[in-house]
């Protein structure tokens, strides 16, 4: 049977993609950020997951406002990125696992989560940046992926509780898959940031620290928050924390934080990294 080995969180800021392309790992601005990742890569080297389910939001590459799904999932043999308008390089494609995707779709829809299913899907920086951060050699090792998109672009967004419950269904669906797959779940985006309006540049370190702590042992702390509450506390784009909650909902066992890193600022954002082990 498939097993969920853990959950990872990371910010997915596009500037990171450019910094990776330019190999700015030792640059003084970037070093405190990039230095958080090698311990997580060591953990991944030990655990060797077969599949990554990547929970992110599309920022206007695959979806436009003509059709804006609340939840969408990839079921394609491979996923490519593309020009997003400002210079993130096109990189090697990511492998999919359509059979596994369809198993998740069957079970999630059965559990009342009516996802949009995508047999073709472009993945943007929300997906590619986390994958590159955790698996710089993803193309060589051939790790398979399932992109899971949650709308954070156009309100109304799904609530923290709804996203956490989606994660719970996702976890059950993964663990009912008959193949012996090791699965890791990525919750991307966040932490506090706001790009738009006179409040641009808003960062809330106190709230972020609380998120980093409570998502490990007390994720249900957030379930009565509204999206508006999240925007007040974490900024307009800090509402991406719902992507972390969906990841956390999928972890079913004893969850232990193996590594964490929090750094301000990367671009306009407080960046948060967590590696959560999910013991049976």
């Amino acid at each position: 049977m498939a097993r969920i080995v853990g959950g990872l969180t990371t910010s997915h800021i596009p500037a990171i993609g450019n910094a990776i392309a330019r190999k700015m790992f030792e640059d003084p601005y970037w070093k405190p950020f990039f230095d958080g990742y090698p311990p997580v890569r060591e953990w991944l080297d030990e655990v060797k997951p077969d599949v990554a389910v990547v929970i992110y939001n599309d920022h206007g590459l695959n979806f436009f406002l003509d059709k804006q799904p609340t939840f969408a999932i990839g079921a394609a043999p491979e996923y490519r990125n593309d020009d997003e308008g400002w210079g993130i390089p096109t990189i090697a494609p990511f492998k999919g696992d359509p059979a596994f995707s369809w198993h998740l779709i069957d079970n999630l829809v059965h559990d009342d989560f009516d996802l949009v299913t995508c047999q073709e899907m472009l993945v943007d920086h929300g997906f590619t940046v986390p994958m590159q951060l955790f698996w710089p050699n993803y193309a060589d090792i051939g790790i398979k992926t399932v992109p899971l998109v949650i709308n954070t672009v156009q309100h109304p967004l799904p609530s923290p509780r709804r996203c956490y419950n989606l994660g719970k269904s996702l976890g059950k669906a993964i663990e009912s898959y008959p193949e012996d797959l090791k699965v890791v779940i990525l919750g991307t985006g966040g932490l506090s940031h706001q790009l738009d309006g006179q409040r641009a540049g808003f960062i809330n370190k106190t709230f972020d620290r609380m998120c980093m702590e409570k998502i490990v042992d007390d994720p249900e702390h957030f379930l009565d928050m509204s999206i508006r509450d999240l925007v007040v506390e974490a900024g307009a784009q800090g509402a991406e924390f719902i992507l972390w909650l969906a990841m956390r909902g999928a972890l079913t066992g004893k969850v232990t934080a193996r590594h964490s890193n929090y750094h301000i600022p990367i671009s306009n954002t407080a960046s948060g990294l967590l590696c959560l082990e999910n013991a049976a």
Partner: peptide, 25 residues
């Protein structure tokens, strides 16, 4: 305008989100 779409417009002029943030504030 939605900020994610506007970012594609701003990007054509080499403006990143810090430039955009500075202008708005």
């Amino acid at each position: 305008g939605n900020i994610y779409y506007l970012a594609k417009f701003a990007g054509m002029y080499g403006l990143n989100v810090q430039d955009v943030g500075a202008q708005q504030t």
